[in-house]
Structures are given as structure tokens and as C-alpha cells.
Write a protein that binds this DNA or RNA. Structure first.
Length: 560
RNA sequence: AACUCCGUGGUGUAACGGUAACACAGCGGAUUUUGGUUCCGUUAUUCAAGGUUCGAAUCCUUGCGGGGUUGCCA
């Protein structure tokens, strides 16, 4: 079964769906066309997923609707095909399809040029030869109006010629721009004669050297939306100030449609950063192991970490959609993945920090094949075989000398259950000269085979996991934790990295059923957490597991 | 304090003039061959002050607090 979202009908779950519902009811639209327009200058992160789950989700919810995937590639100096490909892969992985509707803003360069000419002809745009510094000066500031450029009142004919010469490459970078003629005293600085085109003698990843002038986002974006017949153009809050300009272009150019821009708050998560610039920097400075480092909030990172698209979608549904800035507790995300994996992940036993146990009462060369549930949440999934023998390994944490009364695991004289094994009692602790425990000598009760309760009605408080020493497979296990050590990560973020965000355990011991784990396989190490065979480092026969998320651990809290 | 958007438990959200609710987190308990899961219970909320109204989280005014905006980035 492909991992795609269920198709719900449109409900007023948030203010945007309310607007769409209203537009449908009023007859303004009888279907919707949305778009997800990333700039291909970085990898997509979970914040982008919030946006495109809305864009694609809406198209799924309203009959006869569609969502376009459009590369907003108007700045060739920052963009790259590597990103175009990763974006498509990540959107698909999340379960969405755009069909034939894959576009580039660069598809529209010629049309966009035509709209610019139209504005010039209407006397609404002019070629300005102020330098960047002068333009800044002329713009004024938050409290003072700007003043008009001396080039502002050139004739239409002159502007037409100049703009054609810009296109022809007769101006160097910074020597001329095309600006809209709006209002240099507008209280919204965005409206003080914004730049439409700048000269960039750069090679574009698709149009090559065809162009040396490139449209600005504010100009290209609304018109691209209009060209594609977008009905609802959904974007994040920082574009709120740009909406008047968006509407200005759509109203002054002869476009086939008038899309409506609606803004919503972007996602912020505790203990991580969610800006492309910062993520870019983490990668460039090698503070992480690439865009798909499992600690990254990128979709490729979350995928490698073991997150499922369904859990991410569920999370996004849970956090809702509003117009106010917030900081979402990453615990909500962790809940979503635990909840998903609890239902679906096969259970296995793995010992991360092994200490040897010898069952002195158990025959030397005997091996029993124990039956263990694949997933107790769904016994119909059947069982797997786990070999049991005289020499085992258990978790070092699962034994304690002089344990407090609320310690339920193995101590001298306290019986515990070996899951799917036997009940054992520790008789003797063997230490090396440094005092380190090297072996626990135990006896077992043959009446508890499979870990079952004995007929005498005896009870046991603790159940611990184990692996058979002779059958265990050594494996590298990577324990990932939050990337940053503070909830709210500011601008000096590189100094706030969590030094414990990755702990590599070179020699964990796994039960033999895991020997041939395929990269990407997700399992639960019982009593520890959910793990995923790494897609880059893991090979059948030589698995490497990443911790996706730990199981809740009340004992860790109880002992302080 | 120029303009603009926005303020609901610890966190994310709902309530659309009529008993402030849900999820997560926390706490307590039950069940449990995972100290997991599940189940039950529980703590805690409308930024402030005025106004309109029989009745305000919701409408109005003012104040306070937060975000965005002075790129030839998106």
C-alpha cells in the first residue's frame, strides 16, 4: 500500500479552509488551483511540509482541483538542479503528486518580460540608473518618505529602448534596474517603486545564458500564479507586507486570472532551526553530516532518521494553522512518530551496553528456539524465533547492586523475567580488578519457559531484554538526540549545538533476526526505542541502526 | 510607538455574541511478558483597562506585549 494521505473532504478546520469553503459556496470558484513554489536553493524541511501539505491537501479535498509544483527560480546565482531534484523527491515521499503540473518560473521569462513592457507602456515602470546605494538613500526609511529618482519621469519610448538594451546586455550588473512607478511616499516601503528586473550576468540552470536580466520575486511570483490560474496563493506571514504589491501587479497587467494571496504562520520547532540560511550554514561548516543528517529538520534528514510521512502529516494536522507566530514543542512531533511506529514497527531485542550473564543451571550446549511476538499490538502478525542459550548479554543498566526498592530489574536475590526467555535470579557478581562487573552468574526456573508465569503463582516486577551471546550480531547503533541544547535557538546558533546529539555505539548486540535488515527498515528495540536501518551506512549482513526516537522512560525520571 | 499583522493553560490549537474545549506535556492511579502501549482521573487558560450588550475570548476604544517591513534575496 503506498504511503499516501487519505482523501478527506473539505472542512473548516482552519481559517484558510474557511475562506476556500466560502469561495466555493459563493460561487467565486467551483474548484481550486494551488501551488507550492519553493526556490531551488536548499533542501526542504518540515516547515515546508506544513506549507505543501496545505497546498496539496486542499487540492485533494476539493473536487476537480489541482496543486502545481513550481520552482521559483528567479535568482540563478543561488539555485541548483541538485535542489530541484531533492525537492521533487521529498514532496513525493510525503505522498503528494503534481501530475503534469510541474513548472518553473523560468518557463515564464518571456511572458514576464512582456508584462514588464506592458507596465512601461502604461507609464507604470521605468528604467532607473541610480546605484544600489543611491536607491537605498532615496527610499527613505520607516518614519520618513522617500524621494523620487531623477530617472523616474523618462518617456515611455525612452524606457522601452533602455529596457530592451538591458535585455541585450548593454548594462553591467548594478548599472540599471527596471522599477515599478508606484509611490515613493507610501507607508509600506515595499511599495516605494520596487525593483522588477535587475541585471545578473549569471548562468541559469535551465535558461543558460539566454538572459542577463532576471525578474524579482515580487514581480515574478504573482504573475506566475496568475499565468497558471492559481485561485489561492498560500504563503507564510513574512509576505503579508507584499500583498498590496502582489495585488498591484495582478491588477495592472493583462493576466488571465486574479489569484488571492493568503498568509499563515510558518512552523517553528523547539531545539532546532528552521531557516534555509541556517541549515545551509550547518551543512557548509560541516557541523552536521549533510542536508540529510538524521539530526536535521529537513525531510531528507527526518526520512533517514526513520520518520514516516504519515507521522509527519499527522503532526502537521495536529498543529493547525493560524496567523500568529508560535514555537511548537518538538514533543508533539515525537508523539506522532511514536504513535505511528507503535502500531507498525516489528519488535526486536537489542543490547546497547552489554554485560554477560551465565545461566549456571542451564545445559552447556543447549539452544532453544523461543517464540516471540512480532508486535504485541497486533498478535495476528505472528511470531519470530529468538535463540536462547546458557550465555547471554543483558543491558548493563538492567542490573544493579544495592538497588533501591523501586528498582524492578535484576539485583542479587531479585528475580526478573527475561522477555520470551526464562525467569532468572542472580547468584553471584563477578568483577575485574578495577571493580567493573564483567559477569553475572544466574540460575533459571525451567517452569517459566517463554517467560511465562510459573504454576506456583509467583510474581515478578521486572522484565528485561537480552540476546544470546553465541548468536548475537554486532552492529553499529547511532543514538541521535536534539541538535541544539536550548529550546529556542537564536542567531548565535552554532554555539548552541547539543554536544550529545550523536552518540555512536560501535558494538551493540542484536538478535539474529536483524542480520539481513534492509536499509530503511524500521523496528522497535524493545524497552529502548524505535530504530531505522540507515539508508547510507547499513548493508544486509552488516546493519547500522539510527535511533528515531526513544521510548518514554519513566524510570529515567524516577531515578532522577 | 511609521505602517502593518497578531495576542486563549507550560506547548500547539478550538470555541464565529450564549456553560472556555481538544491534543501534547505534567501529576496520580489501574492494566501489562516492553517502567512501552492502553485505560481512568487530575493540575492549569482568554495581555490589561474601559465601553456596547440581558450576556463578550468573540464587537468598539485605549494601552501593553510580540512579529514583519528600510535587498538589485525569496
Amino acid at each position: 500500500m503506498p504511503d499516501t494521505p487519505a482523501i478527506p473532504t473539505l472542512e473548516p478546520r482552519d481559517f484558510i479552509r474557511e475562506i476556500v469553503l466560502e469561495d466555493l459556496k459563493s460561487g467565486k470558484h467551483d474548484h481550486v488551483v494551488t501551488r507550492f513554489p519553493p526556490e531551488p536553493n536548499g533542501y526542504l524541511h518540515i516547515g515546508h511540509a506544513k506549507a505543501f501539505c496545505l497546498d496539496f491537501g486542499l487540492a485533494l479535498e476539493v473536487p476537480h482541483s489541482r496543486c502545481h509544483l513550481r520552482m521559483d527560480d528567479t535568482n540563478p546565482v543561488k539555485e541548483d538542479v541538485e535542489y530541484v531534484e531533492s525537492i521533487q523527491e521529498d514532496v513525493r515521499w510525503m505522498g503528494f503528486e503534481w501530475g503534469q503540473h510541474f513548472y518553473y518560473a523560468s518557463d515564464y521569462y518571456e511572458q514576464l518580460y512582456g508584462y514588464a513592457v506592458e507596465l512601461i507602456e502604461k507609464g507604470l515602470a521605468y528604467v532607473d540608473e541610480l546605484t544600489a546605494d543611491q536607491m537605498r538613500e532615496y527610499r527613505g526609511n520607516l518614519t520618513e518618505p522617500g524621494k523620487e529618482s531623477p530617472f523616474r519621469n523618462r518617456s515611455v519610448a525612452e524606457n522601452l529602448t533602455l529596457f530592451a538594451r538591458m535585455r541585450a546586455g548593454e548594462f553591467g550588473e548594478g548599472e540599471a534596474v527596471l522599477r515599478a512607478k508606484i509611490d515613493m511616499a507610501h507607508p509600506n516601503l515595499i511599495m516605494r517603486d520596487p525593483t522588477l528586473y535587475r541585471v545578473l550576468k549569471a548562468h541559469h540552470h535551465r535558461t543558460g545564458d539566454d538572459w542577463c536580466i532576471y525578474p524579482m520575486y515580487d514581480f515574478a511570483h504573482p504573475l506566475s500564479d496568475a499565468i497558471e490560474g492559481i485561485t489561492h496563493s498560500l504563503c507564510s506571514l513574512e509576505f503579508e507586507n507584499h500583498r498590496p504589491l502582489y495585488d498591484w501587479f495582478v491588477n495592472h497587467c493583462s493576466v488571465p486570472a486574479k489569484p488571492r494571496q493568503i498568509e499563515f504562520a510558518r512552523l517553528n520547532l523547539t531545539y532546532t532551526v528552521m531557516s534555509k540560511r541556517k541549515l545551509q550554514q550547518l551543512v557548509a561548516e560541516k557541523l552536521v553530516d549533510g542536508w540529510d543528517d538524521p539530526r536535521m529538520p529537513t525531510l531528507s534528514g527526518l526520512r533517514r532518521r526513520g520518520y514516516t510521512p504519515a507521522a509527519i502529516r499527522k503532526f502537521i494536522e495536529t498543529i493547525g494553522l493560524t496567523k500568529f507566530n508560535s514555537l511548537t514543542d518538538v514533543a508533539l512531533l515525537e508523539y506522532a512518530i511514536r504513535n505511528d511506529l507503535n502500531a507498525s514497527a516489528p519488535r526486536v531485542m537489542a543490547v546497547l551496553d552489554p554485560v554477560k550473564v551465565v545461566i549456571t543451571s542451564y545445559p552447556e550446549h543447549q539452544v532453544e528456539e523461543m517464540e516471540a511476538l512480532i508486535n504485541p499490538e497486533d498478535p495476528s502478525l505472528g511470531t519470530r524465533i529468538v535463540p536462547f542459550s546458557r550465555e547471554l548479554y543483558i543491558e548493563r543498566d538492567d542490573f544493579m547492586e544495592n538497588a533501591p526498592k523501586n528498582y524492578f530489574r535484576l539485583t542479587v536475590g531479585q528475580e526478573v523475567r527475561l522477555r520470551y526467555g526464562y525467569w532468572i535470579k542472580c547468584q553471584e557478581v563477578i568483577k575485574d580488578p578495577s571493580g567493573q562487573i564483567v559477569e553475572l552468574r544466574c540460575t533459571h526456573d525451567p517452569a517459566t519457559r517463554g517467560g511465562e508465569n510459573p504454576p506456583d503463582g509467583r510474581k515478578v516486577k521486572g522484565t528485561i531484554h537480552w540476546v544470546s551471546a553465541a548468536h548475537a550480531i554486532p552492529s553499529e547503533v547511532r543514538l541521535y538526540d536534539r541538535l541544539f541544547s536550548v529550546e529556542q535557538v537564536g542567531d548565535d546558533f552554532t554555539s548552541l549545538l547539543n554536544p550529545e546529539s550523536l552518540k555512536i555505539i560501535p558494538n551493540a548486540l542484536l538478535e539474529p533476526s536483524l542480520a539481513m535488515a534492509q536499509p530503511g527498515d524500521r523496528v522497535q528495540f524493545e524497552r529502548i526505542g524505535y530504530f531505522c536501518a540507515d539508508t547510507k551506512l547499513s548493508k544486509p549482513g552488516k546493519p547500522v541502526f539510527n535511533r528515531t526516537v526513544a521510548l518514554k522512560d519513566p524510570w529515567a525520571k524516577a531515578k532522577g
